[in-house]
């Protein structure tokens, strides 16, 4: 029993932090250049063979930056290609990016599809993940996304060509991994919102003292810190449980997903309030964290599926 991060994990976090704090363009460069997309891919498929726990620590940093780029969709697409035996596609995607949609047919809303090489189509109901080629001709309309870290498009899926598909246990494995990494990003957001709030509460003065000296603010910050600490712990706990094939892994993943979703939404709402009018501006990062959390919360393993897994 040891949930303390390894030296390698801590180095990974430090390196990731240096990149994510530097700004949007660099995150995607790092994702491709530093091998983040292949971190959890098995070595025989050209990956680095990292554990899901390693990936979770990395994705927490990506989440905290709120400027992700399609890292999870693309890394999942690479894995789907590898799992389907399409190593040629794996190689092609090393330079590419994937959009995604939680639908497989018709005219649907997709994200990050405009500049994508492939679309990852997720059907959680039947448990399948499919890769289809993405062309500009498929874009019916460009939409305005809630989350400025993504693009949103209405896309026509009637073309029909499928590059790769996984179903059954292989798809289940990918869906569980993706759910853990969504939880990890939400945990990162939960921590980032806490850090922003605590820093501001210590600096901003009203009534002649830092607002963090008032319990109305400091207790809010304490609540945020508790949620953040638990969010990190439960994500590690779920990731290691999946890595070790623990019999409770599915329930723990659903718990991590549920806890981090609630925590990230609570903390991002709270940080806007702690920052006052500044927190309400476009210029400040607080709204980006809220919107990123909202976007991720609607992603892999949504609430109803969590409820089912947690009450079974």
């Amino acid at each position: 029993m040891d949930l303390y991060p390894t030296d390698e994990q801590r180095e990974l976090v430090t390196a990731a932090r240096a990149v994510t704090r530097a700004g949007a363009a660099d995150v995607w460069t790092a994702a491709t250049g530093q091998g983040w997309l292949a971190l959890g891919l098995p070595e025989d498929a050209g990956g680095l063979g990292g554990s899901l726990a390693d990936e979770a620590r990395l994705y927490a940093e990506i989440g905290a930056s709120a400027v992700a780029g399609p890292v999870l969709a693309t890394s999942t697409a690479v894995r789907v290609a590898a799992s389907a035996g399409r190593l040629d596609l794996v190689e092609r995607l090393a330079e590419g990016r994937a959009g995604h949609a939680f639908a497989t047919t018709g005219s649907v809303v997709a994200f990050d599809a405009r500049d994508a090489d492939v679309l990852l189509l997720v059907d959680e109901e039947s448990g399948s993940l499919r890769l289809v080629p993405m062309t500009d001709a498929m874009v019916v309309a460009d939409l305005t996304p809630l989350d400025p870290a993504v693009t949103a498009e209405r896309v026509d899926l009637s073309g029909g060509e499928v590059l790769a598909e996984v179903t059954g246990a292989a798809a289940e494995h990918e869906l569980v991994r993706a759910a853990v990494l969504v939880a990890a990003m939400l945990a990162g957001i939960t921590n980032a919102a806490t850090d922003l709030s605590v820093a501001y509460a210590g600096l901003r003065e009203q009534f002649g003292k830092p607002i963090g000296a008032f319990q109305a603010i400091s207790h809010r910050c304490a609540d945020m810190a508790m949620r953040a600490r638990a969010a990190t712990a439960v994500t590690d706990f779920a990731a290691v449980s999946v890595d070790e094939h623990h019999p409770d892994a599915r329930r723990r993943v659903a718990a991590a997903r549920r806890h981090t979703e609630t925590a990230a939404l609570e903390n991002t709402r709270a940080t806007i309030q702690v920052h006052g009018a500044t927190g309400f501006t476009w210029e400040h990062d607080a709204h980006r964290l809220l919107k990123r959390a909202t976007f991720l919360a609607a992603g892999f393993l949504p609430r109803t599926a969590q409820t089912e897994a947690l009450t079974a």
Partner: peptide, 20 residues
């Protein structure tokens, strides 16, 4: 119940992280 279960697992995880 799902919320309680999720918070219970999170607290368990935090306890394990604490002793670690």
């Amino acid at each position: 119940l799902a919320d309680l279960e999720a918070e219970g697992v999170a607290l368990h995880a935090l306890a394990v992280a604490f002793v670690s």
